[in-house]
Simulated assay, not measured.
Amino acid sequence: MVMGRATKKYTVTLPEEPAEEIRAEVGPGAFSAYVTRAIERQREHDRLEELVGRLEVEYGPVTDADPSAAESGRRGKDSHRSGIRVVTSAMTLAEVTPPSR
């Protein structure tokens, strides 16, 4: 089982050089998990491409100015947040409100 899910054996043909490099890096026991994660990332990428395509049909293509405008808007919202900070410690995220003044 990979990541707690039922598995099924498949035969695929891969380019030898990158496949052997990956197998050497992750070890033979982790090769299937590595390939599974790569497939999952590709599926996510494909779904995001489909979403972008649908959004572009509805709203038009993204222009070069759009990312800058979105970033400026995000920064404006962040500066108006009411004193909430995110503290990272031992891989745990916690929201902390500073003491009242």
Rank of each mutant, 00 (worst) to 15 (best):
R5P: 00
A6H: 05
T7Q: 03
K8H: 05
Y10V: 02
Y10C: 00
T11M: 03
T11V: 03
V12F: 02
V12P: 00
T13D: 01
L14A: 06
L14R: 05
P15A: 09
E16V: 08
E17T: 11
E17Q: 09
P18L: 06
P18A: 04
P18W: 07
A19F: 08
A19V: 01
E20M: 14
E21S: 11
E21L: 14
I22T: 05
R23K: 15
R23E: 11
A24E: 14
A24D: 15
E25H: 10
E25A: 15
E25D: 10
V26G: 01
P28W: 01
P28L: 04
P28Y: 01
G29C: 03
G29A: 15
G29S: 11
G29E: 15
A30F: 06
A30G: 00
F31S: 03
F31H: 01
F31R: 00
S32L: 01
A33V: 04
Y34T: 14
V35I: 15
T36S: 04
T36D: 12
T36H: 07
R37D: 08
I39T: 02
E40D: 15
E40H: 08
Q42L: 06
Q42Y: 11
E44C: 04
E44H: 11
E44Q: 14
H45K: 10
D46I: 11
D46H: 05
R47E: 13
L48C: 02
E50Y: 12
L51S: 11
L51I: 12
L51H: 06
G53S: 08
R54H: 13
E58D: 05
E58I: 01
Y59E: 04
V62Q: 07
V62S: 05
T63F: 08
T63V: 09
D64Y: 08
D66T: 09
D66Q: 05
D66P: 01
D66Y: 08
S68E: 14
A70G: 00
A70V: 14
A70T: 10
E71I: 15
S72T: 12
S72P: 02
S72D: 09
R74V: 11
R74M: 15
R75D: 14
K77S: 09
D78Y: 15
D78A: 13
H80N: 13
R81S: 08
S82L: 11
S82E: 15
S82A: 14
R85W: 02
R85Y: 06
R85H: 13
T88F: 06
T88G: 02
S89K: 15
S89V: 09
T92D: 14
A94Y: 06
P98F: 02
P99K: 00
S100T: 07
R101W: 01
R101D: 00
R101I: 00
